[in-house]
């Protein structure tokens, strides 16, 4: 009888103790979540993917350890070019350790760069399927990075990686609307700069992406002027060139050669810069006034017509149509 009474009393104490601590624990959990110290719940899919043993380990509070093991496994899949397994493993890893930037960056890099490049050269598939696999892989890489950003909104490097991917001349053809991809790239770079911790190049990278979006010339020119005015650290050849062509777009009557000489220092430097820009056709940079500027500068520098850049065949704008030709 005494044992029964004691058991009941203990159970009652256990329940009372539990009732007293639940509000405190729920509050602490919320605080830890706000501090970024509390990992999200493990998805059932993740538990299935990592297997019973690893699930037990992960549930026992060793999620990052399981992710470390999986990272080694992912490396093996990568060397064996088993892209579906690489994708699966990284999906699991980011579920286990969603705050580790390295896993988001590396997973996206495998999908958008390594797997995509593999499909360009995969001779086992017909061109149409290779093209689709290439496109799908880049889109997956983008989605993966975007998820990473949602999980780590303060991480400027993830934003910058997304900006880099979306403005890569070898990648933006994979998206239905390259203008949308370039605009999203500019947004990503802007978000990276807004964190206040990003390196200086991200502001210029935003300009380089925005300059390639049709119809955004005025906003881009304002940004180019602001960055140019910030000082010599921003006066890279690309930024100087974009300032020139956007000014030429704003004012079609502008004397392009005179302004080019003003920006680049002398006629020869201006001519070299305009020539280089003229050949960057693959990257979709605007070329307003460049041809007129080149013609005027060739006259000044007495460059014979046969040596004119304008008479040189531009490099072929190689892209998916060339890579996936029958």
């Amino acid at each position: 009888m005494k044992t029964v009474w004691k058991s009941v009393a203990l159970l009652g104490a256990l329940l009372a103790f539990g009732a007293a601590r639940i509000p405190y624990e729920a509050g602490l959990e919320r605080q830890l979540c706000d501090d970024g110290l509390f990992p999200p719940d493990l998805e059932i899919g993740t538990r299935e993917r990592i297997g019973q043993t690893s699930s037990a380990v992960a549930l026992g509070g060793l999620r990052t350890l399981v992710a470390t093991f999986l990272n080694l496994r992912a490396f093996t899949f990568f060397t064996e070019q088993r892209w579906a397994d690489v994708e699966d493993t990284f999906e699991t890893m980011v579920d286990l350790a969603p705050r580790t930037r390295y896993y988001w960056e590396t997973g996206s890099w495998h999908l958008a760069y390594n797997a995509a490049s593999y499909y360009i050269n995969d001779s086992k598939l017909p061109p149409l399927r290779r093209r689709e696999a290439w496109r799908a892989s880049i889109v997956k890489g983008r989605n993966f990075l975007e998820r990473g950003i949602r999980n780590n909104p303060d991480d400027w490097r993830l934003q910058a990686s997304l900006g880099f991917l979306l403005s890569d001349a070898n990648k933006f053809h994979a998206f239905r609307d390259p203008d949308e991809a370039l605009a999203a790239s500019a947004d990503a770079y802007r978000a990276a700069a807004a964190t206040g911790r990003a390196l200086g190049y991200v502001k210029r990278a935003e300009l380089y992406a925005l300059a390639r979006v049709a119809g955004r010339e005025s906003a881009t020119l304002a940004l180019a002027r602001r960055l140019y005015a910030e000082g010599p650290q921003n006066r890279t050849p690309t930024l100087q060139m974009l300032l020139l062509v956007l000014e030429a777009h704003e004012n079609p009557d502008m004397n392009v050669d005179a302004r080019a000489i003003e920006i680049f220092g002398d006629a020869q430097k201006a001519y070299d810069a305009l020539s280089n820009h003229w050949f960057r056709t693959r990257e979709r940079f605007p070329v307003y006034g460049v041809a007129e500027g080149l013609r005027a500068l060739e006259k000044q520098l007495a460059i014979p017509p046969e040596d004119s850049v304008l008479n040189q065949p531009p490099p072929p704008p190689r892209g998916p149509d060339d890579w996936f030709r029958e």
């Binding site: 329940l15 539990g18 509070g61 999620r63 705050r99």
Partner: peptide, 24 residues
């Protein structure tokens, strides 16, 4: 279940620290 068992998940802050988060 929640009244009787201890909450061990709270101590999984270890994972966040490994990932580079600062613990106040």
């Amino acid at each position: 279940f929640s009244l009787i068992l201890p909450d061990f998940q709270l101590f999984n802050v270890i994972d966040a620290v490994i990932e580079g988060q600062a613990m106040s």
